[in-house]
C-alpha cells in the first residue's frame, strides 16, 4: 500500500502540552518512551496482560501498549514521571512503596503506582480485597503482592490522615 501519512497528535502529558506527528500505527507506549523520552511506563508482556505499561488517561487506568497514540489525541495522560509532588517530595504512594518494601526488581512498579493512583481516587479508603481486585490487571513476579497491598494501604492511610499500624513482611 501507499506510504501512510503521519498525523498530528496533540495531548497533555504530565500537565505539559505536547504536539507531535505520528504514524497511525504508533502505540502509545512507544510514543511515550521513544518520541517523548518518558521511559517510566514499561513494556512487559506487550499483550495487555501484565499492566507494566499502565498510565492514567483522563482519570482512567489504561494499558497503553494496547492503544494507538493517535487515540490519545486531545487527552490528558499522566505517567509515573509526573507522580511526585511539585516540590520534589514523593507522592504518598511512592512513599508507601518505599516504606513497605512494595518492590523488589521494580519492573512492575510504575504500572502498580499509576493503577493504585486511580484506584485510590475512585475508592479513597479501600479494603484489602478491593486493593487486590483493583490491581488484578497488574502482574508482579517478585513480591507475592503482600507488600504491594501494604504499600497501597500505607498510602491510603496517609491520604486519609492516619498512620498504618503495620510493617512490611
Amino acid at each position: 500500500m501507499a506510504e501512510i501519512e503521519k498525523l498530528a497528535v496533540s495531548l497533555v502529558i504530565n500537565g505539559k502540552k505536547i504536539q507531535r506527528f505520528v504514524e497511525p500505527r504508533t502505540l502509545l507506549i512507544h510514543f511515550l518512551r521513544e518520541d517523548i523520552g518518558l521511559t517510566g511506563a514499561h513494556i512487559g508482556c506487550e499483550t495487555g496482560h501484565c499492566g507494566a505499561c499502565t498510565v492514567e488517561i483522563d482519570g482512567q487506568s489504561v494499558k497503553c501498549c494496547t492503544m494507538f497514540a493517535i487515540q490519545a489525541n486531545g487527552s490528558s495522560v499522566n505517567t509515573v514521571e509526573g507522580l511526585a509532588n511539585a516540590d520534589g517530595t514523593l507522592h504518598a504512594l511512592q512513599e508507601g512503596f518505599r516504606q513497605m518494601h512494595g518492590l523488589q526488581c521494580g519492573y512492575c512498579t510504575p504500572g502498580m503506582l499509576m493503577r493504585a493512583k486511580v484506584l485510590l481516587s475512585e475508592t479513597p479508603d479501600p479494603t484489602e480485597e478491593e486493593i487486590r481486585y483493583g490491581i488484578s490487571g497488574n502482574l508482579c513476579r517478585c513480591t507475592g503482592y503482600q507488600n504491594i497491598v501494604k504499600s497501597i494501604q500505607h498510602a491510603a492511610a496517609t491520604l486519609n490522615g492516619r498512620t498504618l499500624q503495620d510493617a512490611a513482611e
Binding site: 495487555g48 499492566g51 499502565t54 488517561i57 482512567q60 487506568s61 489504561v62 494499558k63 494496547t66 492503544m67 493503577r115 484506584l119 483493583g134 488484578s136 490487571g137
Partner: peptide, 9 residues
Amino acid sequence: VADPQIRSK
C-alpha cells in the same frame, strides 16, 4: 470481564 484497565477501554 478482563481487568480494570481493560474495562476502561
